[in-house]
Amino acid sequence: MENLVLSKEKLPEMLTEIASKYALFGPIEENGFTSFKHINNSQEINLDYLLTRISPKSLIFQQTETLFTFNKGKEVKVNTPKTDEAKRVIFGIRPCDARGYSILDPVFEGKKEGDYKDPFYTKKRNRSTLIGLSCNKPDLNCFCTSFDDSPASAKNVDILFTDIGEKYFVDIVTEKGKELIENLSKLFSKASEENREVREKVEQDAINAITRHMNTEGVVKKLDKMFNHDLWQKTAMRCVGCGICTFLCPTCHCFDMQDEAILKEGARIRVWDSCMYPEYTMHASGHNPRPARMNRVRNRIYHKFSYFPKNDKIFACTGCGRCIDYCPVNIDIIDIIAKVKEAKT
């Protein structure tokens, strides 16, 4: 791994350079919260944020996506949609959100030869270079360290920036990252040992600042015995089924597919859906496999902490804490897992 430093005043120049060659996305503050948006002017960017309200999964797994268009009527024709071919750079993504992509990869890109690949996700993912930004001050509900991750983890990004005061410490992680930096090398200088020490200290301080932890040891096995536990009913009683947890989650990937059409033409689109809605699983016959909120709450937890580990060998949780922050009824996933650990079976 190559290490460089970038002085902070050179950041706008770097971003402007990048924006001239790539579609640049970064965190922008609007209406009291930040979200990832296309950036034209490096001044717009706000690095004073902790987490964007809506996770950056929306950049790769778009909320609304056209799967194909069609002409209907007498002459039926199906057409492949135009797709965004631009190479992208996502700047300022937090390590936990970047990890969200890694969790989603096996779902959309398939796990083995012969698996279906989702071309829309795959394409955007492959064309994106991730420039991560370490968290110096984690939030109240951050618990990324519980997943063997760190607020300054470079595992899932191409380049990682860490704020070390006057400068950014830059880890170049992948070939893709190297390629991006290559033309910009004049802006960077070699990192000194001292720089590295500061970076390490910043990371350690951030790790120490994380106050909440989730103990996931043995959870998969424990959940196997807890399907009929009354914890789910108890939790679901206060759930209002609003679905905010799933909409904001960086690893929730469920979607709905619907047709939109006018007289002669139309498209099949997909939009985010949520397992917290009863309509999500409702059969046309009226039978619903998950009729109660209890079933739906349970499915959400099991999907993240049992099904995902079984199928993809990874917990589908990044420890970003969004679902805890924005749940209107204080359904706290750390608390639930703690209760799972305690529960008698």
Binding site: E30, N31, I54, Q63, G241, C242, G243, I244, Y277, P328
Partner: peptide
């Protein structure tokens, strides 16, 4: 317009 453009249609307003 600015507000509605931002809506993610999660329908949380309805459910709550």
């Amino acid at each position: 317009k600015e507000h509605f453009e931002r809506c993610i249609r999660c329908y949380a307003c309805r459910e709550a």
